[in-house]
């Protein structure tokens, strides 16, 4: 078991294997995404019932919450790939970490804007410097920082390692985002869906749409990330013979 995993890890570490493997995987992920996204949107907008307090405005949740989860999920993946890049100096891990940053930034941006659009009618304000909102904004800046640092250094591989280090340090922000609503008084409410206790404060008729949308964003990220990494592989490995062969036909 361990040996198989280790072999996989090393094989995927080869740009060529990664390029082939992801090329085969992308169509499947894309189909899964289209199906879950269409189903999820239908459920969120047409099937899920009106909320007893917030009326129809709560439907923003179905794009806000999956995006927020993606912002955190992508950061974790970026940091793990960053760690692999720093310790093992694996080229593909560097590319994965760097490719994560702009996608994570996009999802975090969606989280902030949709949260603001939800906050205005419900809370009565577009923005409040409470701990949850501020730490989420900081997450966006971390993503932008990783992208900026990577762009600022000439050597692609050194740049990736520097950016990976920044990404790793920023991991400290993740528990702060998650627990901000517990540790401090905030305008943002506590967690509705609790992953570990299995207890949820959402009616099943509403939860279904949220879970489908969450799956859709995961598939979407899979397609976006793999394709971004493929582009980076082609650019950075353009002199490799297998890339040259690709261009031949």
């Amino acid at each position: 078991m361990w040996k198989t995993l280790k072999r996989w890890f090393h094989q995927l570490g080869s740009p060529r294997t990664f390029y082939r493997f992801s090329g085969a995987l992308i169509p499947w992920l894309f189909v899964a995404m289209v199906i879950t996204l269409a189903w999820g949107l239908y459920q969120s907008l047409l099937v899920a019932p009106t909320d007893y307090q917030q009326g129809e405005s709560y439907r923003i949740l179905y794009v806000h919450v999956p995006s927020a989860w993606m912002g955190l999920f992508i950061y974790v993946l970026m940091a793990v790939s960053g760690l692999i890049a720093l310790v093992w100096r694996m080229k593909v891990a560097e590319m994965v970490a760097i490719a994560c940053a702009p996608i994570g930034a996009a999802y975090t941006f969606v989280t902030l804007v949709t949260g603001s659009l939800w906050g205005k009618p419900m809370w009565g304000t577009w923005w409040e410097w409470d701990a949850r909102l501020t730490s989420e904004l900081f997450l966006l800046f971390l993503y932008l920082g990783v992208m900026g640092l990577y762009a600022a250094i000439e050597d692609r591989r050194k740049a990736a390692r520097a950016a990976a280090l920044l990404a790793l340090v920023g991991v400290v922000n993740l528990p702060i985002i998650h627990y901000s609503v517990v540790w401090w008084n905030t305008l943002h409410q506590g967690a509705t869906v609790k992953l570990f206790s299995g207890e949820s404060h959402m009616h099943p008729s509403m939860l279904k749409a949220l879970l489908i949308m969450t799956a859709a964003t995961k598939f979407h990220f899979g397609v976006a990330l793999l394709q971004s990494v493929r582009a980076r592989i082609l650019q950075q490995e353009s002199k490799a013979s297998w890339v040259q062969e690709l261009v031949d036909d």
Binding site: P49, T50, Q53, W123, G124, T192, H201, M202
Partner: peptide, 16 residues
């Protein structure tokens, strides 16, 4: 300034 804080519960009106 008065801001509303909502709780983390979501349910349809009939259930409430």
């Amino acid at each position: 300034e008065v801001l509303a804080k909502h709780d983390e519960k979501y349910m349809p009106p009939e259930v409430a």
